[in-house]
Design a protein around this nucleic acid. Structure first.
Lengths: 361, 361
DNA sequence: GGCCGCGTTTAAATTGTTTAGATCACGATC
DNA sequence: GATCGTGATCTAAACAATTTAAACGCGGCC
């Protein structure tokens, strides 16, 4: 009795499959039978193989179109080991920094008819692993990833070992033997910091982000290098770490304004933090760009329309996405892609959020 | 000679598949052979079927884990007609309005082990069709879509006919026989408009968005109804249509400020437009929330930290995503889901971007 | 001796790709 | 005129990894 029940419940989820099987009945053999040729010929014809005569091919393609044949990629990939799927994992799809990267990846992959599956890992290693596992199960052709904090090189090695070639964007993983595409972060924050220094600022804080990632360390290093090169003091309390969001920047304003020997400028982790910080500063009754100078990073579209317009560092997102996708495609097609670290040179875009320092009593 | 060349180029893309086939060699039969059981037993054991004895199952699972077996979903789905993939199409992934919807869809689908593929259609019908076609080829189990402008009901009918059940979010398609989940837009803009009216505003513009979608018509209608109910004039020139982005809101500021009998308040299509508009107003030297009242729509996280904090209409995004995903899952499992239109009741969140009107000479 | 239940196995099925070989027409060669 | 070679088309059959319906072996039971 009990076992009878378990049996039923176990097979209960069939209905959808049945429904689908019922609907999806047009296959290669349907076409083959209708035209009196073999399925092999149909398969070859639909893929424009030179092995089949021009007019046979035309007849087949026309008939396939007419009866609404739908190509079954699963069946095909079972044989070919290529699924036409590429995985993309980033911290958070919604972070506008990734917007442009994703767009350029999308357009690059479109060209070679690869579909992509997107996922966030929210910097949780477990989520990232689950996703990679899913990609392996689906037989994905490759993965482009911005690795989660703490990703061990073994994870990437394992993926490659199981036929899932990887390329990294935005962050690097020490010891992983794959191509990495990202901006030159140290150089970039150096640009921003030097800009502030040249305006006359001497007390400059660095707001937002963490030092747990390669990006984090590089950005902080660029700031430190610039400060030291100018003979300026770097105080630990001037490093206000935190999430990379507007909300975090907004909340950091309180901490920033309460600092002893209050800095006159903030070099922010990214545009989101910078905009949040400016909002927080404005809320406190000060005027960002006049009372406090603020720089961002990434040059999001939003930076130009913020109030005041944000001085920021353009990070080459388009390039990162395009090159990463292109390198992955090369890998898929069996070309040897050497695991280099491509650093894209950032550029400073000066706007109204930075100015000469105003000293108050 | 020429034909020889074409031949070569045609078969040239095999290398990756070969590489993968080489790496991926552990399959059901590998385990079966090692333990001296049949592949059927292994298949059943791994899926915790009651048809296989407890200790056999444990041995099989342990061995599978030890040698790093990877489940091949393509092979399985060929047989079962279920792929574990759900498609999600929206206008633009990067629009933060969809952020919360996507997050709740993600967490709902996670629970039943469905992977989802995301895509933008940027309101281009052709892109949407290509994506649906890809889903059909991959044997996706279903699709959640915010339909592109101009989507004919036949497109949705065709998908369902081919075994791809659909549910709609955010927008409806007249004549499509599927469930739709969205906010009550007319009611929502009514809330915002009435709030402005109750503060004493008489000249209120509506900024952003288009009237080509069901959402657009509903939102405009809610605004018009509220105005008329209060006996206020609705001028065509006060309807400043446009894209639904910050950039568009920013640019609309010029047009808004140049209006004859300049309105004292703007009821904006969404938070992005509202924030852009406020930035534009601030850039022109006026103070949003004092000189001009502005309302948004969606209640993005950002609304609360904008300067000034934005009065806006909460749209129940979480609910939309959760219910849509849940309805789709029901459909997949063969339950009859009636094609109802679920309207989620919006709520007004009053902040500092609205106040009593200031009349200037 | 037939039937039952249990655990397992066998064989068929899912759909498209690939490869070795079949077929045919046509000219050239002996 | 028969044989052979050749190139162009096409086909039969093997193959990919899994699921599942049906069958099987084996005690125990009536």
């Amino acid at each position: 009795m009990a076992s009878g029940f378990r049996w039923r419940s176990w097979i209960s989820s069939r209905s959808s499959g049945e429904r689908k099987a019922l609907a999806q009945k047009i296959k290669l053999s349907t076409i083959a039978d209708a035209l009196g040729v073999s399925t092999a010929t149909v398969s070859l014809a639909l893929r424009d193989s030179p092995l089949v005569a021009g007019n046979t091919r035309d007849r087949i393609k026309e008939h396939a179109r007419a009866i609404g044949y739908i190509y079954n990629r699963r069946a095909a990939s079972l044989r070919t080991s290529r699924s036409g799927i590429v995985g993309v994992v980033v911290h958070d799809i919604m972070n506008p920094f990734f917007a442009e990267i994703l767009r350029s990846i999308e357009s690059e992959l479109d060209r070679s008819r690869q579909t992509f599956i997107l996922s966030n890992h929210y910097d949780q290693l477990e989520k990232q692993r689950t996703f990679i596992d899913t990609l392996l199960q689906l037989g994905a052709d490759g993965v482009i990833m911005s690795p989660a904090i703490g990703t061990p090189p073994e994870d990437i090695f394992m993926a490659e070992e199981n036929g899932l070639p990887a390329v990294l964007i935005a962050r690097t993983v020490e010891g992983a033997d794959v191509p990495v595409f990202r901006g030159d972060d140290a150089y970039g924050t150096g640009l921003a910091t030097n800009h502030l220094i040249s305006l006359g600022h001497k007390r400059i804080a660095m707001v937002g982000g963490t030092d747990q990632t390669s990006t984090g360390r590089d950005r902080y290093q660029g700031y430190v290098n610039a400060m030291e090169a100018a003979g300026l003091e770097v105080r630990p309390s001037w490093r206000i770490a935190g999430p990379r969001t507007k909300q975090a920047g907004f909340e950091a304003a309180g901490q920033f304004l309460a600092l002893k020997d209050k800095p006159t400028a903030a070099c922010c982790w990214n545009d989101l933090v910078a905009i949040g910080l400016m909002n927080g500063i404005a809320r406190a009754g000060l005027v960002p760009g006049i009372d406090i100078s603020v720089t961002g990073y990434d040059d999001l579209e939003e930076a130009a329309i913020a109030t005041p317009a944000l001085t920021t560092v353009w990070n080459g997102q388009r390039e990162v996405g395009r090159r990463a996708a292109s390198a992955l495609l090369d890998k898929l097609n069996g070309q040897m892609v050497r695991p280099s670290q491509e650093l894209i040179k950032p550029e400073l875009h000066v706007r109204q959020s930075t100015g000469k320092p105003v000293e108050r009593a």
